[in-house]
Each structure stands twice: as structure tokens, then as C-alpha cells.
Nucleic acid binder design. Structure first.
Lengths: 114, 114
DNA sequence: TCTTTATTTTCGTCAAATGTTAATTAACAG
DNA sequence: CTGTTAATTAACATTTGACGAAAATAAAGA
């Protein structure tokens, strides 16, 4: 498995995507808070956090008995980067035929540079 | 499963990500070409294509006995959109702490960070 | 030390995913 | 209608992933 497929795999579960979005919106949170807000057991959440950690999507900070989790920005950058690598295929028009034309070595109209 | 987790699930396998990247780089291709270039059997590829199709990542065009596959741009747009929704978290600074501070202008409980 | 609190690991089970080979459907040529 | 090519589906074995319950680890405090 490549780094990217591991990242996608980590985010391919609703429970885990929800955990990540909580961390994205609210910042660093302890495992206990994440477990309390979830509908499944604390051990199950702990395992999901482990999957996310091993995929490099989140990082853990230990403080006493608490484990604080937060999102690793590089993981989102990697996904963003992958979509940008293939931007010519999906950006520009909403029409698929136009996307094919966008592959021509021609500059993309309408969109300002970012 | 949400649309997004289904998309991530479809791309969470190396074989499938490779198929998608071939289609992104070379445009529409028949199942036979994709199967011939893969290291696993044609039936296995056929099922991977089905997973991608059911997740909305690729579309199929039938012409005689041939099935031509191509990437559905909306799938990549959805992923790109998700990363952009949380852009504040990973863009700007390369430092993780900066991102946390940017989201919480006040309350910073920890003192001994890392 | 003994106990409480916070979190993770282990265990047993079950559903889903993956790969192979064989069989099947579909289009087309003779 | 029979044979050939393209692609999918069927059947089967194996692996992987997810869950709850219970046990284990680790830090704090009485």
C-alpha cells in the first residue's frame, strides 16, 4: 500500500471520517471526548484512532493519562496535492468532453491563478 | 456510507488507484487494455472496475463488445472540495502549531507542548 | 500500596473484500 | 448456427476489518 492509498483507506470509514472532521473543526481533542460523543464503545474508537494514527492522518500527544489527538496537516496536503496533480482532468468545465480538451497543452480559461 | 467515504473506499486499494491513474493520464481505455497491463486476472480487474463504477469514480461507455472506461471528474472535484473545506487547517504555515493557533484565537490550555 | 480514571490491547466472532479458475453472456464474422 | 473475441458473473478459499466484552497498562491520588 502506498502512502496515499493508506490515507484513503483510513478515511474510507464513516466513523473515522467523523473523528477526523471533529478534530479539523474543533482542534486537538482527548480520546475520551471523542469516545463519549461516538455511538460505539471506547475500545472501538481507540482502535479507529490507531488506524488513523498508523496511516499518518492524526498525531497523538500524551499528557498524563490523557491522549490528545489532532489532524496531521500533511495528510490533507497529500490528498489536495493528488487532486491538483490531475486538476486538468476535472477543472474548467462541468462537461466531461471539455475535460478531455483540457488535457491539450493549452492554458485553462476562466480560472485565476491560485 | 456517505458519498465521500465511498469515494475514499474506492481509492483505498492500490490496484484501483493504479487503474484510475491510468485513466487520468491516458484518457478513456477499454477493460481489456487495463486487464492486460495489470498483474492480476481479468475477472479481478473487472470487479475492481465495478467497485469504482458503483462508487461513481469512473463511468462506462459500451461500444460493441468493448467497455470503455473513463474517470468521472465529479469524483475528483468532491475530494478536492473536501480538502478545500478544511484548507484553513493545512494551508498557510507548514507548522502544525500555527494551524491550531489560527483556529483558536483565545484559549490555549497546554503549556508544555511537545 | 491500593484504588480510581483514562485508554489501549486481546480475544472470539462475523461480515466483507480479494484472488483464482470455470462458466456465462454478448457481439460479430463466416 | 457455429466459432471467436471481449468482458462479466459464479463458485470457492483465504484474508482482512469491525465490533463488544473483558483484561491489561499507565498515571494520579488517598
Amino acid at each position: 500500500m502506498t502512502t496515499l492509498t493508506k490515507t484513503f483507506a483510513a478515511l474510507s470509514d464513516d466513523t473515522r471520517l467523523t473523528l477526523v472532521e471533529k478534530l479539523l473543526k474543533r482542534g486537538e481533542l482527548p480520546a475520551g471526548t471523542l469516545a463519549a460523543e461516538a455511538e460505539i464503545s471506547a475500545p472501538a474508537i481507540s482502535r479507529h484512532l490507531k488506524v488513523l494514527r498508523e496511516a499518518g492522518v492524526i498525531v497523538q500527544r500524551v499528557e498524563g493519562t490523557h491522549r490528545y489527538y489532532s489532524v496531521q496537516p500533511d495528510a490533507l496536503r497529500a490528498i489536495h496535492g493528488w487532486t491538483m496533480d490531475h486538476r486538468a482532468f476535472w477543472s474548467g468545465s462541468l462537461d466531461r468532453l471539455d475535460t478531455l480538451l483540457a488535457l491539450e497543452p493549452d492554458d485553462t480559461p476562466g480560472e485565476g491563478t491560485e
